[in-house]
Design a protein around this nucleic acid. Structure first.
Length: 440
RNA sequence: GUGGCUAUGGUGUAAUGGUAACACAGCAGGUUGUGGUCCUGUUAUCGUGGGUUCGAUCCCCACUAGCCACCCCA
């Protein structure tokens, strides 16, 4: 037994360190060094959504499981295999929300927002949860920035939502492409689906196991198949455009016209279908044009129209559309392309010596803060050397040093860290002196 | 969820069947009130558990985690 021999070889009796508590799989911490990028994303989200007349909404992390089963769709992967759902001790069946749209529609219905001037435009930045297998850019808890417009069926809305998403990425320095498609109304889609199934049924022997499963479960997804053996089949398959009802068709045309007008580059992708059941008519996704192959692969955001969702969840029929951006993916892109900004530094460092000095320095620090001068300190430290080291590392321009002697004299030392010179000033004039020096 | 690759200090890496080297970061010092250079010391039971072996960080298995592809999606 190696474990029995090791302690003997080691003279010192090993104290068994407890195993560190591990992080839950698929979760991630946002460390201080990454906060500036997150701040930038949140600020951009807020700026754009309020510029386009959206108001912020926050909904709970926990919802009745049935909200997602009914809203997102029982058959979807998101609900069927990725939902964090559990029973509470009170016997409720609840889920950590896997997406933001259904909860917002729930809130819209619950709070009678259909009585407000329509449309109601709402935005959020909030964590979502999906029990998927984690990978780079795919986490079990992830942040989404989303915008939803309820109570307006116009094509302008679709276009405007796409613009917001596009600008969000662009203004954060990410070059993105919009892929767009229309999947029509529930009826026209059902018809198309039938046509597609009967088409692929005749070629069933050429389909992979994966695609056979899709044929039964989610035939539209076959169009998304990467199987090279059936690319020719895909090309000859019925196209969804040919099955769109007139209204969906003209709606889609309008959306494209508006996008042209707004100068948003887009690619028509007849194979684009989305995995959530509630989508109707316009669907779109944002892809980053990254040189980095891996980062370019997955979409960073997506959305579309969901005219039937409100009714599905027990509200009155309400046309609606929205999109969601995957903040974590945007973050990864930004981090890969940008050099992290230097952490914010304060210009002043307040150093103390001895107990008397510490007391006075504490007071000076407060005085500076009230005067709007943010300064660094290390009141927990004893040695002046360590404090000066810190002041230097934080690139402080000036150090204020207060020791026993200064307390007795009613003075303070101001040291110019770059020049290495220092002068003694009246402690009562310290704020004034520093302001004078900093403004130079 | 399926398949594959990987796993050494805080970070990035190295070497090896006989218990680990380097860089950076960290901490403590280099004569009790002062920084940036320099010097010294210090920081790893080599992801977890088991097996093979006289002996494993190094070989084998399982687990876990990360990554990659698929699935899916943001």
């Amino acid at each position: 037994m190696p474990t029995a021999k090791k302690p003997a070889a080691k003279e010192t009796p090993a104290k068994k360190a407890p195993q560190p508590v591990a992080q839950v799989r698929g979760m991630r911490d946002t460390l201080p060094e990454d906060q500036p990028l997150w701040d930038a994303m949140r600020a951009k989200a807020k700026e754009l959504s309020s510029a386009y007349g959206f108001e912020r909404i926050d909904t709970p992390v926990l919802e009745e499981t049935s909200l997602f089963v009914r809203g997102v769709g029982k058959q979807t992967d998101v609900v069927e295999k990725e939902l964090y759902n559990f029973e509470t001790s009170g016997g409720e069946t609840v889920s950590l929300r896997p997406e933001g749209t259904a909860p917002i529609v729930r809130a819209y219905i619950q709070h009678g927002m259909f009585n407000q001037p329509q449309p109601v435009k709402l935005w959020y930045v909030a964590p979502m949860f999906r029990h998927d297998r984690p990978q780079h850019g795919r986490y079990r808890q992830f942040q989404q920035f989303g915008c939803e417009v309820l109570g307006d069926g116009g094509a302008v809305i679709d276009a405007q939502l796409i613009v917001i998403g596009y600008l969000f990425l662009k203004e954060l320095g990410i070059d993105a492409t919009v892929q767009i498609n229309s999947i029509g109304t529930a009826e026209s889609r059902a018809n198309y689906r039938n046509a597609l199934v009967s088409y692929f049924r005749t070629k069933r022997n050429r389909l992979s196991e994966e695609d056979k499963k899709r044929l039964l479960k989610n035939p539209l997804r076959i169009l998304d198949s990467k199987d090279p053996a059936i690319q020719d089949l895909k090309a000859e398959a019925p196209q969804i455009v040919d099955w769109l009802d007139e209204e969906s068709k003209t709606h889609f045309m309008h959306v494209l016209e508006y996008l042209d007008e707004l100068g948003v580059p887009y690619q028509l992708n007849p194979y684009l279908v989305r995995g959530l059941d509630y989508y109707t008519k316009t669907v779109f996704e944002f892809y980053a044009n990254s040189q980095d192959q891996e980062l370019a692969q997955s979409s960073v955001g997506g959305g579309g129209r969901f005219d039937g969702l409100t009714e599905l969840l027990g509200g009155r029929p309400t046309a609606a559309a929205g999109f969601a951006m995957g903040m974590d993916r945007v973050f990864n892109l930004m981090k890969a392309t940008r050099t992290a900004p230097e952490p914010k530094q304060s210009d002043i460092f307040v150093a103390h010596l001895g107990e008397q000095g510490r007391k006075r320095a504490l007071a000076v620090f407060e005085e500076l803060r009230k005067a709007g001068i943010s300064s660094g300190e290390a009141f927990g430290k004893e040695s002046i050397k360590g404090q000066m080291e810190l002041a230097n590392r934080r690139k402080a321009k000036f150090a204020v040093i207060i020791g026993q002697k200064e307390v007795l004299d009613g003075t303070a030392i101001i040291r110019d860290m770059d020049a290495g010179t220092q002068e003694i000033v009246d402690v009562r004039k310290i704020v004034h002196e520093l302001q004078k020096k900093l403004s130079k």
